[in-house]
Structure formats: structure tokens, C-alpha cells
Nucleic acid binder design. Structure first.
Lengths: 226, 226
DNA sequence: TGATTATTGATTGTTAACAATCAGTGGTAA
DNA sequence: TTACCACTGATTGTTAACAATCAATAATCA
């Protein structure tokens, strides 16, 4: 048996995507080539490829001769991203209602339990990760990798948006709206599931406030170690 | 006034995307680094970056140590892509019905005229480009760049799918279903517009036949000159 | 002092040479 | 013939050195 080959660029890309999703990397942070190649002990060429891929994910902006920066979504971007999420997650949810089997329902319930636990311990980083994870899990159950990939991207951008425009506010996935959606899916009640999901997404979007000024950046190295 | 700087990678990426959209580049074609750097008279590093971006567009597959190839969508990919299109274009069309102004309607009608002309002259390449262009135009009128970007990607993949699985069949945008959609938009009849669009997309999808074997590849250089 | 201009250090962009890998060719043995 | 193996040419992957550009500091002049 061969050892599982690990493409280096993939590691870099995934690390940075994770850091963005978890809101450890905030919008506007500079992604210097040297800094990254130091952290991952690799060639600058690899970093370059990785940054190019991240540009494709639309979470990194590349300014010629100036370097790469974590994208800073505008208020217009925020509206567009959430509208896109409603469009895509509606279809994902419809698929999930139709396709979810016993295993999937068990996965969903286990996920809800984890969210509860994190809420109980006031574990904010875990809650951020789990809140996103719920939507990703729904997409996997929907069994459309094309839509799942887009949702990956959109939730990533949502993390940047929330980090930028909803810092102070407790915009962190209200109570357990997720639980209601799971119940509706288990009951095969498509209309209710879609309605609750739409409400949920609008609720998240309503929590963002554009009058807040974006504060400043955090460190890169720190964000990539956690 | 400064001269408009033209990033070289962008030229390569756009050329290849255009060639795919126009079905001059077919699924499975090898995209050799040497060949491309010869065509564009540039460094291999630029080609490498361009191919990396195209991978992000999901129309190019990268096999380690084997090179880059135009993606070959599976039947499952085809289903997923068209379901994603229905999800996204539904919202785009809703936006278009709401936002289309006089200029937009004029653009749409001019586009229909161009399609008619191309049909009249049996100009198949023009028809391919215009058929895709209609959906892209709708997305621009919808004024959500996030959705528009995804539709760009999905129509590109649709071109590959149609080129693969609907070669012989006259799957080329039936008659003028587009005209009906424009009429509904002009009448601000959202329900009718959505229904016609959904029908249209299902009609296109119905034209693909998975039992046909993918034939073979065409030349790269030829595809990129046109 | 305040604004403008050089200079400098660091960062990104470019290039070419070298190494590793693969596909196809041709040869050898059963 | 068929299967297997070594070789070869071509292609991709990697690295390091060099050039160009930018931001920040320091210096100059009104």
C-alpha cells in the first residue's frame, strides 16, 4: 500500500480556508509570500500557486505588485452572497428532505447535540465552526457536489462578512433554529423545512450592521497555528 | 492617461474559457504547458498560473505529473450542473423581472434579433455563443455579480456537457424559447417568466444522451486561434 | 513647520537551469 | 505472438538567482 500523497498546495489552501471559516483570519489581512512559505516551510512557488487557488475561491484579492490580501466584502457583496445562499440552500434543502436516510438523520441529530454542548460551555470558536458545519452537512446530505462546492465558498465569504459587520452583536446562529429544520426534514415536511431555512438565513443577514467601521487586522502566523 | 495594463494570465484564461464556451475546445483535450506558452509567446510560469485559475473554474482537471486537461463531466456532473442552473437562474430571473429597465429590455430584444439572424444563416458557432450569451445577459440584468459569476461557470460546464453528450442531436436552444422569456419579463409576469425558464432549462437537459461514447479530441492550437 | 523628493529595504515578478516523472519505443524471453 | 522490461524523449515539478516595483524612512527646500 502506498503512502497517501499530500499535495503541499492543498495543505496551504485548506489551512487558510479553515482560518477564514473560523474567523481567525479577518478581512484585509495581508498574506505575504515570505510569511506563508516560512510557516509551511516550503518554496515560494507553492505559496504562489496556493494564493492563486484562493483567489479562485474569491476569498483572497490579488493586487499586482502589492501582494495578496484576505478579501474585504462590501455591503453589496454581503447582500449578493446571502441572496445566493438562499437560492442555493433552498435547492439543497429540498434535496435533503427527499434524500435523507436514517444515517443522515443521525448525523444531523449528533450535530445538534454538539452545538448544544458548545453553547453550554460558551465555546464561541466551536460554535462558529459548528454553525457553518450544519449548512455544510445539509449540503452533503443533498448529494449535489456542485451546489455543495458553491455553498462552501459562500459560507466562507459569510464568515468574512460576519466578522466585518457583526463583530459585537451576538449574531451567532440564534438559539436553535437548526433544530427546527432537522425536525422538518425528519418529518419530510418540505414546505416547513424550506420556510424555516429561509427564515434562518434572513435572520443571520439581519444581524449585520454596515455602519460599524472595520477595525483592523490580526496576525497571520497566529491565525494559522490554531 | 495611462495605458490599460493587460495581465497576461487573464488573456490566457479568457482565451481558453472562450474556446470552451464556444465548443472549440472539447472535453479531454490536453493543455500542455509548452504548447500554450508557445501560442501566447510567454513564460511557462504564466501558463502555470493560468491553468491553476482554470482549475478553480472547474473546467480544467490537473493530474499530478501528468498535466492539465479540459474537464470531462460525468453524467452525474451533468445532472448536478443543470440542477444548480435551475436553482441559480430562478433567482436571477426573479431579479431580472423586478429590475429590468428600458435599456435592459432593448438589450434583450437586440439579442433576440441577433439569435434570429444567426438561425437564419445557419451559423452554428454564432448560435452557440448567443445561446449562452442570453443567459449571461439575463444574469447581468439581475444585478447580482455573485450569482452571475456562478452562472458563468455553470454555462461553461454546460458547453462541455453538451459537446460531450449531445453532439449529433440538434440540442441547440430550441426555436425561440428565449423570446417567450423576454416577453414575460417585459410584462413583469414573474410566474410566467420563471415557469418558461425552468421549462427551457429542462428542455436543454432532456436533449443530452449519455449512451453516446465520447469520440476524441481536437487540436489545441486550432481552437485558440479562432 | 509642512510639503515634496531621494533613498533604502523589503516584497513581488520573472527567468532559466536542473531534477523527477511519465508515456511510448523497442527489444528480449517464454 | 504475447508479456515483460529497460531505455529514451518529452513533459512536468522544483529551485535559486536576478530584476522590477512599492512603501516607508530620511533628507531637502520653501
Amino acid at each position: 500500500m502506498e503512502t497517501m500523497e499530500k499535495p503541499l498546495e492543498t495543505l496551504i489552501v485548506d489551512s487558510i480556508l479553515d482560518a477564514i471559516a473560523d474567523q481567525r483570519l479577518v478581512a484585509g489581512t495581508k498574506l505575504g509570500e515570505q510569511a506563508i512559505s516560512d510557516i509551511f516551510a516550503c518554496n515560494r512557488a507553492h505559496v504562489r500557486r496556493a494564493l492563486s487557488m484562493l483567489t479562485g475561491w474569491q476569498v483572497v484579492d490579488h493586487l499586482p505588485n502589492r501582494g495578496a490580501y484576505v478579501a474585504t466584502p462590501t455591503p453589496q457583496d454581503a447582500r449578493d452572497v446571502f441572496q445566493a445562499r438562499r437560492a442555493i440552500e433552498t435547492t439543497i434543502c429540498r434535496n435533503a428532505v427527499r434524500l435523507a436516510d436514517a444515517t443522515d438523520l443521525a448525523d444531523l441529530r449528533r450535530h445538534l447535540a454538539q452545538e448544544d454542548a458548545a453553547r453550554g460551555h460558551d465555546n464561541r470558536p466551536a460554535l462558529i465552526r459548528l454553525s457553518r458545519g450544519f449548512h455544510i452537512l445539509l449540503a452533503r446530505i443533498g448529494r449535489n457536489p456542485v451546489l455543495a462546492r458553491y455553498l462552501d465558498e459562500l459560507t466562507m465569504r459569510s464568515s468574512l462578512i460576519i466578522g466585518l459587520y457583526a463583530q459585537g452583536h451576538a449574531t451567532l446562529c440564534a438559539e436553535d433554529e437548526h433544530a427546527g429544520i432537522v425536525a422538518a426534514i425528519a418529518a419530510r415536511d418540505e414546505a416547513r423545512a424550506l420556510s424555516l431555512l429561509d427564515q434562518h438565513l434572513r435572520h443571520i443577514e439581519a444581524g449585520i450592521r454596515f455602519d460599524d467601521v472595520p477595525p483592523a487586522t490580526g496576525g497571520l502566523a497566529a491565525a494559522l497555528r490554531g
